[in-house]
Design a protein around this nucleic acid. Structure first.
Lengths: 214, 214
DNA sequence: TAGATTGTTAATCGATTAACAATC
DNA sequence: TAGATTGTTAATCGATTAACAATC
């Protein structure tokens, strides 16, 4: 059970293992082998075992992995066994979608409030969450021990919002503005448009379809 | 000018080059070297040249790359020099955000209509786009020559929506439902929750910060 | 026990980076 | 021309896959 360095590629696969194990558990599956799991996820069995062994030996020779206990281990590794409080800056379309994005509850991330500067929005609620003036951002983060700052604001203000969030003490930033914000805390920049652009590329550069290899 | 296979990693970088070149052009920059561009994008100069040379020799020894012409080349490679018509299935929060997602216009992707099954939504408009009953999906796609199908529907119906879109003739699918839909046409599955989960992981597994290497 | 499957080392593969002749 | 920078080949690095002894 020697722990090795966890590469970004491994980290990116962890949520996918988590999702698949959730499905297996709710389907009542008790145990699974690396081979079966790999098949279901279109991965390689060695890769699955390598990935898990970054964190410890969760399996048993001749048996495989117990779904429930593996799920628990991965939930712990992903730190989804504790709650997170979040705020959203930018109460437009994306901010509104974030405010009640389904799946947040399950992952224990709860949006507590939204922030905007438009007078007509302030004082309203979105999905039951209050919309406050962005001037109150730092105070709110400090007073409510906010863990995660979500940015759904315009590109031009995104970096300064990130700076303010970090200063006020959030532990991570989830950014949807179309530029990479930088911070000394963990940041996930989501570039939805990049994915759409890749789709356009693929539409116009069709490759021989090797999806149906069995 | 020998063309090599274009890996997925290269395709994923193309939108980032495109964005950076847009910035440079609007800043009035006329030419750029692979070294400068790499520095700005936190890439390696060799990588930049390798990437571009997947598609042809766009540079000039001793000079570098002309920003405007390189931008044009990449726009062409990404096939952003033609319009795309799109529909959105699911007129909830995410669907609403997609209906007027900023950046679509610039990338020439225009949402023409949304589809839902909720009676109270049908006949309304969202961001000026009509909301129609999902029963009319196939006919609409055929009659309006829709290129891209966007899925912002519940997980349980996402795959069948994808099947119907494909049958009706869309060329690509942009899926936001929390499962991978499969099709014989290009598909981009966006798992926003996966990114949030990775953020939780990183918050709880802080690594020595090597962001400030200069 | 025999069969199955892990954990882990070794081999392979592909992507990134370095080097440098070509050339503007 | 001299300096700069590309295009491209070679070297390195890291991730994926294969192999197999350990062991349940």
């Amino acid at each position: 059970m020697e722990l090795r360095r966890v590469s970004e590629a491994v980290v990116r696969r962890l949520p996918k293992y988590y999702r698949q194990l959730l499905l297996l558990e709710s389907a009542g599956v008790e145990r699974i082998s690396s081979g079966k799991l790999a098949q279901q996820m279109r991965l390689n069995a060695s890769q699955v075992r390598q990935d898990f062994n970054c964190f410890g030996g969760f399996g048993q020779q001749g048996y495989g992995y117990n779904v429930r206990s593996l799920l628990g281990e991965i939930r712990g590794i992903l730190a989804l066994d504790r709650p997170y409080k979040a705020v959203v800056v930018g109460a437009g379309n994306i901010g509104g979608a974030l405010a009640n994005f389904e799946g947040f509850e399950r992952e224990s991330v709860v949006v507590e409030a939204l922030f905007d500067i438009k007078p007509e929005l302030i004082g309203t609620t979105i999905s039951g969450k209050p919309v406050l003036h962005t001037d109150a951002l730092e105070d709110y983060i400090r007073e409510h021990d906010i863990d995660i700052g979500m940015i759904a604001a315009r590109r031009s203000v995104a970096q300064s919002v990130a700076d303010r969030m970090q200063t006020a003490g959030v532990q991570g930033i989830w950014n949807f503005a179309p530029l990479d914000v930088v911070a000394d805390i963990p940041v996930e920049n989501i570039h939805m448009t990049d994915s759409l652009i890749c789709l356009c590329y693929k539409i116009n550069h069709k490759l021989p379809d090797n999806d149906d290899i069995e």
